[in-house]
């Protein structure tokens, strides 16, 4: 017989109730990058809008950065860690894949036996995590969920690749999602375009070193084997990000039942200032909308960029609690996720 299963007992609505960020102590200016590539500060700024980025020290691991960001987010949310029933870690740069690092985070923050798992959706990872968190809360599987984006992309940077050496940074951003009386996270417009999987990718798989034909592995000028790095086809990514993602951003507004006029804040993935500027133009965002431009001082931190930018806008008073924000992440996959949220 088919037994009747009880309908979900969770909260139909959820919202972000706290945010926290951690940026590594060491700030790396463009001048330092120029030791490795033939370029100029002016060229880097005009192509990317990036002036500085933070690079982690050996002690600033993905876990340690996450614990700092998570601690701030939990304090900001005004809950105790024991109330967290789920921990979702979005990252592509934690190199020990098993076990999921989220389990270590759940344990070390004091979230006990919280459900914990990692998500790999590249630069869209934070949005994927947020969508899952909302579902867990609606389902009643968790009452509060910690969603983290954390990266050490400096470990995946080829310093001799003049098109990407200046692009990436390190950091962690975290939010606590909890139940709400009214919708605080809109429907996600998300997806993937696997036909473009080669557009942004790691240069070689990890097992390339194990099974690899040495001739297939990337080598440096002195014949040394090169660690895997992120590479991308800049023009293709730019076109997709600006023009296709502007459509996705509009769909997220439509799905939330609002228009650009209702927005206070726009927080796109901090990939590149040129992408951000062109998206704003293509979306025809009204003047009153505050646009996150954290990439200038933080670089591209993949899954960490949206929560880091959110935290900074709130900390500097450029945005305030209760503001309506459109967030959109997009990157390797090519995967994307956009949604409208109420800021914590």
């Amino acid at each position: 017989m088919t037994a009747k299963i009880k309908p979900p007992q969770g909260s139909p609505y959820a919202r972000i109730i706290g945010v926290g960020g951690y940026r590594p102590t060491r700030i790396v200016p463009n001048e330092e990058i120029l030791k490795h590539i033939d370029s100029s500060d002016e060229w880097i700024r005009s192509r990317s809008g990036i002036a500085t980025r933070h690079w982690a020290s050996p002690e600033e691991t993905v876990a340690e950065m996450t614990l700092e960001a998570a601690g701030k987010a939990i304090a900001d949310a005004g809950i105790s860690a024991g109330e967290i029933g789920g921990v979702i870690m979005a990252t592509v740069s934690h190199f020990k894949q098993t076990p999921a690092i989220a389990t270590e985070i759940a344990h070390r923050i004091g979230a006990g036996r919280a459900a914990a798992f990692d998500v790999n959706a590249g630069c869209a990872g934070f949005g994927y995590g947020l969508t899952l968190a909302k579902g867990m809360i609606a389902d009643g599987s968790a009452r509060h969920v910690l969603v983290v984006g954390a990266e050490r992309l400096s470990d995946l940077t080829d310093l001799t690749d003049r098109s990407t050496a200046f692009l990436f940074g390190d950091g962690a951003g975290a939010v606590v999602v909890g139940p709400a009386d009214e919708p605080g996270i809109g429907p996600s417009v998300w997806g993937s375009e696997g036909d473009k999987a080669d557009v942004i990718s790691q240069t070689i798989p990890w097992d390339g070193f194990r099974v690899g034909d040495l001739a297939q592995l990337p080598v440096g000028e002195n014949g040394e084997l090169k660690f895997p790095a992120l590479r991308q086809e800049g023009q293709t990514v730019f076109r997709w990000a600006v023009f296709e993602m502007a459509k996705v951003a509009q769909q997220a507004l439509d799905a939330a039942g609002i228009t650009a006029q209702d927005l206070d804040v726009f927080i796109p993935h901090q990939a590149n200032m040129r992408i951000i500027d062109s998206m704003v133009k293509t979306l025809k965002l009204p003047e009153h909308v505050t646009v996150a431009r954290d990439v200038e001082s933080t670089g591209n931190t993949s899954a960490a960029s949206i929560p880091l930018a959110m935290e900074r806008l709130l900390a500097t008073g450029q945005a305030k609690s209760g503001d309506t924000a459109l967030i959109i992440g997009f990157g390797a996959g090519l995967a994307y996720a956009a949604t409208v949220v109420t800021l914590p």
Partner: peptide, 27 residues
């Protein structure tokens, strides 16, 4: 017109002249 602005020029030209210009042809 740098490589990124070129993408914007190409997309604007595609709309204006009803033509498709794939990335491989842009270079």
């Amino acid at each position: 017109v740098d490589s990124l602005s070129m993408v914007e020029v190409v997309v604007a030209a595609e709309e204006r002249f009803d033509v498709k210009i794939p990335d491989d042809d842009v270079k």
